[in-house]
């Protein structure tokens, strides 16, 4: 069997991982503040479709990405307003967001269905470096945003674990009453991180559109990647750095069916192979819920709980 193809699959997995990393980083920031946003899948779709539409009419990739981020801010603000402001059930609000955003993306995306992409995100040309064996495709075969994403993860990790606002963020997820007693604003911290998280999610969707998709194809464009990103948050135990490894693993499982098909290796029918990313995600979730793993994980203690001062 050709070993080169598996190397390329691995390189592809690292590339796909960019979406997963960005989306789960958004979810990590949101959940660390104590808010769970299940709307990831919908946010990805909205980022993808608005990015496409803006690029289609303006021809500018940067403007498209910028608008996608704004859309994320707007959608996440709705979630924050409902859950932080109005103390609505976070689970139901997130699901409502998935349904609303999925419907909206299909509604506004109807005219561009199947159209070719107006702009593309291409890998950076490193010249001779890209031709080196192994390191060529794996390290030097990606686009600007993939590298920026790695930097962003490092920055987010530093922010969360080494700065005072990061400490406040973690405290808000674990013990909002303490933050409140110290004079911090639980609502503001939750609001800000939900919105920033949402912006990362739609950006992830727009990146996926321009870097990894062939065309806008309704909800099949992302095909459940948002949900995998949510599972990835658990896998990463709410720590940004760990999301990278998980994202590459999940990215690999997403990519393998395509590789097998391209190589015409028929172990299993393609429809059965397509189940694997989800089954692997589920298996990982199960492994992580054993009591031993749970102790090591450290989910935000007040995740999903609205904070109400007077009731304490």
């Amino acid at each position: 069997m050709n070993s080169n193809i598996w190397l390329l699959t691995f390189a592809d997995a690292i590339s796909i991982a960019t979406t997963l990393i960005l989306a789960s980083l958004g979810a990590i920031l949101t959940e660390r503040s104590g808010v769970i946003n299940l709307g990831v899948e919908g946010m990805l779709l909205m980022g993808a479709v608005t990015g496409f539409l803006v690029a289609d009419s303006s021809g500018s990739l940067w403007l498209a990405l910028f608008v996608a981020v704004l859309v994320g801010v707007a959608l996440a603000s709705v979630h924050a307003a409902l859950t932080v402001g109005l103390r609505a059930n976070q689970i139901v609000s997130g699901l409502a967001m998935v349904i609303f955003a999925t419907g909206l993306s299909q509604f506004i995306g109807k005219p561009i269905e199947g159209d070719p992409l107006p702009v593309l995100i291409r890998p950076i040309d490193f010249g001779a470096l890209s031709d080196t064996p192994f390191f060529g495709p794996v390290v030097f075969g990606h686009d600007l945003f993939t590298y920026l994403t790695w930097v962003l993860v490092a920055a987010a990790s530093f922010y969360m674990h080494r700065t005072r606002p990061g400490l406040l963020l973690r405290a808000t997820g674990d013990a909002p009453a303490t933050v409140d007693a110290q004079g911090g604003s639980v609502a503001r911290i939750r609001w800000v991180h939900t919105v920033v998280g949402g912006a990362l999610m739609t950006f992830a969707g727009a990146w996926y559109m321009f870097a990894r998709s062939a065309a806008w194809n309704q909800s099949a464009t992302t095909n459940g990647i948002g949900w995998i990103a949510l599972a990835l948050v658990v896998f990463a135990s709410w720590r940004p750095i760990r999301a990278i490894g998980g994202a590459v693993l999940f990215g690999f499982s997403l990519q393998v069916p395509f590789t097998l098909q391209a190589e015409q290796i028929r172990i299993l029918p393609p429809t059965i192979l397509a189940m694997f990313p989800y089954l692997i995600t589920l298996a990982v979730l199960v492994a992580l819920s054993t009591p031993r793993a749970r102790r090591l994980l450290g989910a935000p203690k007040m995740l999903g709980q609205p904070f109400v001062r007077d009731e304490r």
Binding site: L86, N89, V92, S93, A96, M97, I99, Q106, F107
Partner: peptide, 22 residues
């Protein structure tokens, strides 16, 4: 009109109903 408008309405109804809970 794309059928997706029905899904948009469904999502929006639920979002407003959630707000109304308050």
């Amino acid at each position: 009109v794309p059928i997706a408008i029905a899904v948009v309405l469904q999502g929006a109804v639920l979002l407003f109903a959630l707000g109304g809970e308050l």
